[in-house]
Design a protein around this nucleic acid. Structure first.
Lengths: 137, 137
DNA sequence: TTTAAATGATACCATATTAGTATCATTTGT
DNA sequence: ACAAATGATACTAATATGGTATCATTTAAA
């Protein structure tokens, strides 16, 4: 099983590429050519990134997308949140029937701690850190 | 998204229940009654737990399942491995095309570290610790 | 020794999620 | 006016998950 799905993956790739183009507006077709991601799929993803404030968009002829934040302010866990929803260790096995008293539930607390640590670690992975890496390849 | 799926969830519940019955052999129908998990589904899960050494099984009339290990030696990450495969942060975005040199890849190392920490934290959650919790409810 | 009650193995079906496409509406520069 | 871009959204396809059915094998006991 994977923590990161295709949408998030493509979003990372696209954002990475855009960050490298320092401040230049890009249209979807520029990106598909470079990244080899299917046009309509990538478009959907960029629209979502726009909707959630990662990209600024301009419509009409000559329009396109551009990063709306510094790569240092784009965090992996935020991208995961957009495309995959909130990270949960489990939906069901800690439900009321097994564990009715949330506060006294040791296990629930442990699991929730693990979740928190995982999220905070994912939030240390910024778009910036991905780019540094790519420069070195 | 959830780290733990239904199979793993039911497996935990079943193992927990069995651990409470100290050393008593149980058949699937005993468990379905207690846990309200559909019979054929639970059966499939118990068979898998047997196959992977968590349970001992005896066939034929009067047969059934019994824990094959101490609850202290049953780890959450092992159960996840059985029912959901190896935990991976990502299958694709760190593939060869983006990151051809595995050793020099800073990001890959970071991600792999996060993975390792997550796994080691999950491995601290034993069946034992779940039961302690349940006693207190 | 037959039979019923149990698991072993495995193929199958149903539903949900993920991946990807298509299309019409709106905006905007020329 | 028109072409080129995104906005919104509905749709289809593929895969993963959740769950069922069934036949084979083993075993205790009548």
């Amino acid at each position: 099983m994977s923590l990161i799905n295709r949408d998030t993956d493509y979003a990372i790739k696209a954002l990475c590429f855009m960050a490298k183009q320092n401040k230049e507006k890009l249209k979807v077709s520029d990106l598909t050519r470079a990244l080899k991601i299917p046009y309509p799929f990538l478009r959907k993803i960029l629209q979502a990134l726009h909707k959630h404030g990662f990209l600024a968009a301009s419509k009409g002829k000559g329009g396109g997308f551009i990063l709306a934040r510094s790569p240092r302010r784009i965090f992996l866990n935020d991208l995961i949140l957009v495309f995959q929803g909130p990270l949960k260790l489990n939906n069901c096995f800690l439900n009321k029937k097994i564990c009715p008293d949330v506060n006294s539930c040791l296990l629930r607390r442990k699991i929730s701690d693990i979740e928190k640590r995982l999220k905070s670690e994912l939030s240390l992975l910024t778009l910036d850190s991905l780019m540094i890496n790519q420069e070195r390849r």
